[in-house]
Amino acid sequence: GKELVLALYDYQEKSPREVTMKKGDILTLLNSTNKDWWKVEVNDRQGFVPAAYVKKL
């Protein structure tokens, strides 16, 4: 099944490779191999968020 993460904080994208999320959002985790930036999918968009801003559910 898909792995989900919870947004712990708001995050505003700073580049086209990133995505914006709001605290409390549930996101689909696509890739967590990089310890600093995790790739997630939110609202049919894929991009990176800081790993410290999310936690695995």
Rank of each mutant, 00 (worst) to 15 (best):
K23F: 05
A52R: 15
L4H: 09
G24E: 02
K22S: 10
K39P: 01
K35A: 13
D36R: 12
L30G: 01
V54Y: 01
M21T: 03
L8P: 00
K35H: 12
D25V: 05
K56R: 14
Y11D: 00
V54T: 04
V49N: 01
M21H: 01
Y9I: 10
E41P: 00
L29G: 01
S32G: 11
E18V: 05
R45A: 06
A7V: 11
Q46F: 08
T20Y: 04
E18G: 12
K14E: 08
P50Y: 02
A51K: 06
R45M: 07
L29F: 03
D44S: 12
T33M: 11
N43E: 12
V5Q: 01
G1Q: 13
K14W: 04
D44R: 09
E3L: 12
G1R: 13
A52E: 11
K22F: 12
V19K: 02
K35T: 10
V42W: 09
K39Q: 13
N43L: 12
E18T: 08
D25G: 05
D44P: 06
T33C: 13
I26H: 05
T33Q: 12
Q12P: 06
K23H: 06
Y9D: 07
V42D: 14
K39W: 15
L27R: 01
W37I: 03
L29A: 02
L29P: 00
K22P: 00
Q12I: 14
E13V: 07
T20A: 07
A51M: 05
T33V: 10
Y53S: 13
E13H: 09
I26V: 11
D25Y: 05
E18Q: 10
A52D: 12
V42Q: 15
T28F: 12
V40D: 00
L4G: 03
A7L: 02
R17N: 14
T20W: 04
P16C: 10
V5F: 06
K55G: 09
V42G: 15
S32T: 09
L57M: 10
N31W: 07
I26S: 03
V40H: 00
P16N: 10
Q46Y: 07
N34K: 07
N31L: 09
G47Q: 02
V5P: 00
K14N: 10
N31Q: 10
A7P: 00
K55A: 13
G24H: 05
D36L: 13
L6Q: 11
W38N: 01
G47R: 02
Q12A: 13
Q12Y: 14
R45S: 07
Q12C: 12
L27S: 02
Q46G: 06
S32F: 07
K56I: 15
N31P: 03
V54S: 01
K56D: 05
K39C: 14
F48M: 08
K55Y: 10
I26M: 07
V40E: 00
N43W: 10
V54A: 03
N34S: 09
G1Y: 14
S15D: 11
Y11S: 00
L8Y: 04
D44H: 12
P16L: 09
T28W: 11
Q46V: 14
K56N: 07
K23I: 06
D36W: 15
A7M: 02
D10A: 06
W37H: 03
L6H: 04
L57Q: 05
K23W: 04
F48A: 03
N34L: 09
S32E: 15
N31K: 07
K39G: 06
V49K: 00
K22L: 09
S32M: 09
K23M: 08
V49F: 00
F48H: 05
L8I: 09
Q12E: 15
K2E: 10
V42T: 15
Y53P: 02
G24K: 02
M21W: 01
P16T: 10
Y9P: 00
Q12R: 11
Y11L: 01
V19Y: 03
T28P: 15
A51N: 03
K55I: 15
K35M: 11
I26E: 04
K39I: 15
A7Q: 01
A51G: 05
L6Y: 10
L57I: 15
E41I: 09
L30C: 07
V19I: 15
E3Q: 13
E3Y: 10
T20P: 07
V54M: 06
R45F: 05
D10C: 06
L27V: 06
N43K: 14
N43Q: 12
F48E: 04
W38P: 01
K2D: 08
K39M: 15
A52Y: 10
K56F: 11
K56A: 08
K35R: 11
P50I: 01
K23P: 03
M21Y: 01
L29C: 07
E3T: 13
D25M: 14
N43C: 13
S15V: 05
K2M: 12
L8Q: 05
D44E: 13
F48T: 03
Y11N: 01
V42H: 15
A52C: 15
L4P: 04
G24C: 09
L27W: 03
K23G: 05
L4T: 08
S15E: 08
L6P: 00
Q12K: 14
W37E: 04
T33F: 10
N34A: 09
P16E: 13
A52V: 10
D36S: 10
E41W: 07
Y53E: 03
V54P: 02
R45L: 07
G1S: 14
Y11K: 00
L8V: 08
N43P: 12
L29E: 00
G24Q: 02
K55M: 13
D25L: 05
K23A: 13
K2P: 14
F48N: 04
I26L: 09
K35F: 08
V42L: 15
Y9N: 08
P50H: 02
G1M: 13
L6G: 03
F48K: 03
T33G: 11
E18K: 04
W38F: 07
G24Y: 05
V40R: 00
K39A: 08
L4S: 07
R45T: 07
M21A: 02
L4N: 05
F48W: 15
R17D: 12
K56G: 06
N34T: 06
K23Q: 09
K14S: 10
L57S: 04
D10Q: 03
I26T: 07
E41T: 07
F48L: 09
N31M: 09
V19Q: 03
G1V: 14
V5A: 12
G1A: 14
W37S: 02
P16K: 10
N31I: 08
K56S: 08
S32C: 13
S32L: 05
V40I: 08
V5L: 12
L8G: 02
D44W: 08
K56T: 08
M21N: 01
S15K: 07
K55Q: 14
G47H: 02
P16G: 09
V19N: 04
P50Q: 02
V5M: 05
L4W: 14
V5I: 08
N43T: 10
E41M: 11
L6I: 15
D36P: 02
L30H: 05
E3M: 13
K39S: 08
K23R: 11
E18H: 07
N31H: 07
P50N: 02
V40G: 00
L27Q: 01
R45W: 05
L6R: 08
I26Y: 07
V42K: 15
K39Y: 15
W37R: 03
E41L: 09
L6C: 09
V19L: 14
L8T: 04
K2W: 12
L29S: 02
S15G: 12
L30K: 04
L30D: 02
Y53H: 09
P16Q: 10
F48G: 01
V19D: 00
K35N: 13
P16F: 09
Q46N: 09
Q46H: 09
K2I: 13
I26K: 05
P16H: 10
L27C: 10
V42S: 15
K2N: 11
D25E: 12
P16V: 09
L27Y: 09
E13D: 05
K39E: 14
Y9E: 11
A7Y: 02
L29I: 05
V40C: 06
W37F: 06
K22D: 04
G24P: 00
T20V: 03
K2C: 14
R45C: 06
D36M: 14
Y53G: 08
N31S: 13
A52M: 12
E13F: 06
Y11E: 01
R17S: 13
V5N: 01
